[in-house]
Amino acid sequence: MPQRTPLFEAHVSAGGKIVDFAGWELPIHYGSQLKEHETVRADAGVFDVSHMTVVDVSGPQATAFLQKLLANDVAKLGFEGKALYSGMLNAQGGVIDDLIVYKTAWDYRVVVNAATRDKDLAWINQQAAAFDVTVTERPELAMLAIQGPNAIAKVKAAKPHLAALIDSLKVFQGMPAGEWFVARTGYTGEDGLEIMLPASVAVAFWDALLAAGVAPTGLGARDTLRLEAGMNLYGHEMDDGVSPLAAGMGWTIAWQPAERDFIGRSVIEAEKATGPAYKQVGLVLEGKGVLRAGQVVKTPAGDGVITSGTFSPTLKLSIAMARVPAAASERVDVDIRGKNEPARIVKMPFVRNGAKVFE
């Protein structure tokens, strides 16, 4: 039976069209996905991401544990609140999940994807058995993402007592405020906040945000926004069988110090040495149609595949993220309903802070 977040009734009251997402009943939109997308780019929108899984890691060996578990290195977290994006790999070098880890007063907070919760927790607990650490899931917390150029100002208007803390945050930093945890992070390519808070007060906070002029925003706009921002989605750009080097995540791998033996290191180190067979690229369609996940990308170096594709509301053209042979460059064709349509490879992101980025 699908699960519901503490905000389910609020979504229904706001006119949300409810769909099943990874076993959760969540809003795909509140009437117009396009309008919600444009509102986040120009003003501020709020997403219910309470289905995400929050895990606290503490104990004498918490750092050593996460240095083994993650491809990125938590030793780089030089001050409280600093956040790090990382892949969590299996022994074969595939991506079990991508996540954010925060340095906290109690050691670390990790936020993983809802669709991978069960396997993530099983893997984390299995690996934790060899370390003196405590792993605690925090299901009593809800989570809201408020994104857009006016998001921070409107959150401060809705919750003035958070204003000083919010003003102190650097980009990609999160700090506690009592039982709340406020992070300057997001998944849209806009400035904004992701706020974890007790589920018991989530509806009141939601209502305060809407009263401050923040628009309720659904999963549909969240997907087009993150795609424009060139951000990976688990199950599309990467999964247990895809190397981080083929998923555009090479920048998240901390190769130094050389003696740090994180899980999957030997496999992807060998892949790096010989040269990955595939790479992740951005595509802009120059022919007719719309780029969609699963379409074949034809290049002189061999075939690739679109992992995520859409019509970009901001750019008014079709864009995609694709995994293609490493030697592919510049021009490609995409099989759209049996016809080869021309597209070109571009460097991502496509959009950042509401404006076109690629050449």
Rank of each mutant, 00 (worst) to 15 (best):
F181P: 04
V19C: 06
G264I: 08
G230N: 13
Q33I: 10
K159L: 15
S168A: 11
A158I: 13
S312D: 03
G241P: 00
V214A: 00
D98T: 01
S312P: 06
K154Q: 13
G354S: 13
I18W: 07
I345G: 07
K76P: 05
A91R: 12
T252S: 06
A83P: 08
G264D: 08
F181Q: 14
V281W: 00
G235T: 01
N150V: 11
A130D: 14
Y85D: 08
I195D: 10
G218H: 02
T134C: 13
L34W: 00
I18R: 10
L165S: 12
P325I: 03
A44K: 09
A258T: 08
E190L: 02
N72C: 05
G31P: 03
A328S: 14
A91N: 09
S200M: 08
E330P: 08
K298F: 00
W255K: 12
G230S: 04
R337L: 02
S86F: 04
R337F: 00
E25W: 04
G248N: 11
K76E: 13
A229S: 07
L66W: 05
D303S: 10
R222M: 08
V297Q: 05
G264Q: 14
G178E: 02
L210G: 03
S266M: 07
E179Q: 13
Q280H: 04
V203T: 15
I195E: 13
S13R: 15
A177G: 12
I18V: 09
P2K: 01
D120L: 01
R344G: 12
A64K: 14
M321E: 07
S50A: 02
V201Q: 07
M348E: 10
K159V: 15
P198C: 05
P349A: 02
P60Y: 02
I319L: 07
F65D: 03
D333F: 06
S308C: 10
V332W: 01
Y85E: 11
I268P: 13
H37E: 00
A129H: 11
L66E: 06
A22R: 02
L144Y: 15
S58M: 05
L193P: 06
A128I: 04
G78N: 13
E341T: 09
I166C: 13
K76D: 13
A83H: 09
V12M: 05
L7D: 09
G31A: 04
G59K: 03
D167G: 12
K272F: 06
T299N: 13
E36P: 04
D191V: 08
L26E: 09
F47W: 01
A328F: 07
V214F: 00
R41E: 07
L26T: 02
I263Y: 11
R117D: 08
G94R: 06
I28T: 07
R265M: 01
R265L: 04
V110E: 02
K272Q: 14
G309L: 01
A211S: 14
K103T: 03
A163P: 15
S200A: 15
T274P: 09
F205A: 12
T63Y: 02
V101E: 08
L141F: 12
S168H: 09
G264R: 14
